[in-house]
């Protein structure tokens, strides 16, 4: 879909929400909701998006919205979908609806993980969207299992002894693909058409679909507000955040950078990695580069690109 054409559709998330200036979650959600052709029932797990878009008595959502706790958005939306299916079978409803549960990385990788896994395994006809900004930004930047290695957060502070988060991030997209659901994709807002195309596939999929989208957070990444989208491009060019989809078990690469950039291009503009550039942490950058290279090789292999 051309952007010009997409712009003709109605806006589903209004302005006047209170996400930070330059927050990537707003961009991601706007683009994903553009791809829906039906009225939707939206749920958000606790996180920046939930609290900022629904500050009482305001809502930025043009669709039905259900407020949730941190751990249960996938359970809530799967329940709504089941109720809808029942009403439809009884002939009490005939309108088409889309069902979407949205969580940040904290609500998807960590706290809401079991309800997400359960909803996908039960096979509900719903979409789960994770906007991954790599930490619990809403409560003031605590590390999550999506936080990249070496990042400085308030619960993985970089100091003289420990240089930021000690573990690599976990690959939730792979874990969801291992659920053998019909559609799983990893996307990024710097390619808005690719993101909308994936969202459209997700909405049209019969059964569960999972989208994992990188969302820049200027506060948590300690980066410039205007550079957020550019950073998501750098993430793809350095192969830190590859774009791919898994459709009925078949892996497909969606973006292969012409020239793979060094991981320092991704680390340097972000203040959360500042300490990595001290002479004593030189080895750590090499380690991170090796890890990214290995991951990229794995993705290429799975996508049959070798």
């Amino acid at each position: 879909m051309k952007l010009k054409e997409a712009a003709k559709k109605e806006e589903r998330l209004t302005g006047g929400h209170r996400l930070c200036s330059g927050c990537g979650a707003g961009t991601v959600v706007r683009l994903v909701m553009r791809a829906s052709d039906n009225p939707a029932v939206v749920g958000c797990s606790t996180g920046c998006l939930e609290v900022s878009t629904t500050i009482y008595p305001y809502t930025a959502w043009e669709d039905s919205f259900i407020h949730n706790a941190f751990e249960n958005v996938a359970a809530t939306i799967s329940g709504v979908e089941s109720a809808y299916r029942s009403l439809r079978n009884q002939g009490k409803m005939d309108e088409d609806f889309d069902f979407i549960a949205i969580g940040g990385d904290g609500g998807s990788y960590d706290i809401g993980f079991q309800s997400l896994s359960g909803a996908m395994e039960r096979g509900h006809d719903m979409v789960y969207l994770c906007y991954d900004n790599g930490a619990y930004m809403n409560t003031g930047i605590q590390r999550s299992s999506a936080t990249p290695k070496g990042a400085n957060t308030t619960t993985s502070p970089a100091g003289e002894v420990i240089p930021g988060k000690q573990q690599y991030r976990k690959e939730l997209t792979d874990i969801m693909a291992a659920h053998n659901i019909p559609y799983v994709a990893q996307a990024s807002p710097f390619k808005p058409q690719d993101l909308m195309k994936k969202a459209k596939k997700a909405f049209e999929t019969e059964g569960p679909a999972f989208l994992n989208v990188l969302a820049p957070c200027p506060r948590g990444w300690r980066s410039k507000a205007e550079e957020g989208i550019e950073l998501t491009k750098i993430a793809a060019d350095t192969c830190f955040w590859p774009l791919f989809e898994v459709e009925n078990g078949e892996w497909k690469l969606n973006y292969n950078p012409k020239a793979k950039k060094p991981i320092t291009d991704w680390l340097e503009p972000q203040g959360r990695f500042k300490h990595l550039f001290k002479p004593e942490n030189e080895g750590l950058i090499e380690e991170i580069q090796e890890h990214v290279d290995e991951r990229w090789e794995t993705i290429l292999h799975r996508c049959g690109e070798e």
């Binding site: 010009k4 712009a7 209004t14 996400l19 200036s21 330059g22 990537g24 205007e226 957020g228």
Partner: peptide, 28 residues
Amino acid sequence: FCPDSSVLSEDGDVKAEIDYDHCKGCGI
């Protein structure tokens, strides 16, 4: 890219206006 739905487009034409009531000035 606008996170605040503040670049307005009318009939496929983005030259319409910017919604200064909601634009937070992020500069993206």
